[in-house]
Nucleic acid binder design. Structure first.
Lengths: 200, 200
DNA sequence: AAAAGACTACCTAACGTTCGTTAGGTTACA
DNA sequence: TGTAACCTAACGAACGTTAGGTAGTCTTTT
């Protein structure tokens, strides 16, 4: 039995584990599943990680890390507040569209995540873009509740993507409703002008 | 034909299983867990249900049934389109606030639900209120994409609730942001007037 | 430069536990 | 007496995890 030429390291394993956890959740993925995806035996995973929970936490950390940086680019847009909002929404939507794994992991964390993990995600991934969104909200609608506005912006974008599986079966559901440019245009219009703004 | 007073029937078991499934998901709840909640042994569950999956599906069906009816009351509001929207948002928000179990189950279905179940939920639970929302959207913003508007309305309400666990750790998060009247006022303002409408 | 030792990354085999599920017996009420 | 509702006991499978072994690779010593 010849051994593989190149040994696996932690990062390789985590990168292969992330999509599994995203698709089936913590309890839905066994150590044997992960090992099989990596191409080794389950017992060998314990050479790299002390237990499953640690592996999972490190996979989550890896999946979420660098995400904050991605969001930062969505905040580089300059110009009028309206233009900056439109730019942010567009970039954020495109980013989220391209990363179903991230969305699934986030959803799972919102359902099952413990306080420690949620706190970590909040401060390390979302805090910076969230603050920028709040500042933008305060410019566009002074005196409003910036926190609620920021959540609303994220809601509009993310829920259109989250509900994709069921929207297919709801009246009026079309394939184009999943396209980032369609979503971002709708959301921008709605945010800037209310319901009257999303018809154009 | 008449059951002994002390005996459990299917409905009792399902009602006790629903919150367990809502909290921990299908794989996170064992037959022994359910039996323990009911006050019987796991083997006895097989007197009422052929297997775990059937029990789960019937629990889901029960959790979602009569929900459509609850939504119907949110559509009884009359008056100007603006007033009807405000009324619908308020009632729908209050309804969702009171039912974290339903929200959790819906979220889990969006993540893990197969096509058949999603189709069933779409047609039996959401179709009717969704059509009404679309009609309302068409009145308020003729020519708009009613499907997207309806999703946006639901997004705004549900995501404010879904993100409650993480909003605590995001800047500006306050306890009142989880109150139905605060959410519905914010959402109504945003929908009718855009960002400028949620400051007042 | 070669041998000896240590280390890394994997293996096979198995452990104890929990799981869904089944078989067959018991009890209480019609 | 029949049947519905429950029980105890146990099955096999899958799970996370551990023990102990092996084959290459790197490091040190002679």
């Amino acid at each position: 039995m010849t051994r593989p030429v190149k040994s696996k390291n932690k990062e390789d394993i985590l990168d292969l584990a992330i999509p599994l956890f995203a698709q089936s959740g913590y309890t839905g993925v066994s150590m044997r599943d992960i090992a099989s995806a990596v191409g080794i035996k389950a017992a060998s995973l314990y050479h790299h990680f002390p237990d499953k929970q640690t592996l999972y936490l490190q996979a989550m950390a890896r999946a979420f890390e660098d995400k904050a940086q991605g969001f930062a680019t969505a905040l580089t847009v300059t110009g009028t507040p309206e233009k900056r909002l439109a730019g942010f929404v567009q970039i954020f939507t495109t980013l989220m569209c391209k990363d179903p794994e991230f969305r699934a992991l986030l959803q799972r964390e919102l359902l099952d995540g413990d306080e420690v993990r949620l706190k970590k995600i909040a401060s390390e991934v979302f805090r910076e873009p969230f603050v920028a969104m709040e500042a933008l909200a305060d410019e566009l609608a002074p005196g409003c509740d910036a926190h609620m506005v920021a959540i609303s912006i994220a809601s509009l974008i993310l829920y259109h993507l989250e509900t994709a599986p069921i929207r297919r079966y709801l009246p009026g559901g079309k394939a184009r409703h999943n396209k980032p440019e369609v979503i971002s245009r709708h959301v921008t219009g709605l945010l800037l002008h209310g319901l009257k703004g999303c018809g154009k």
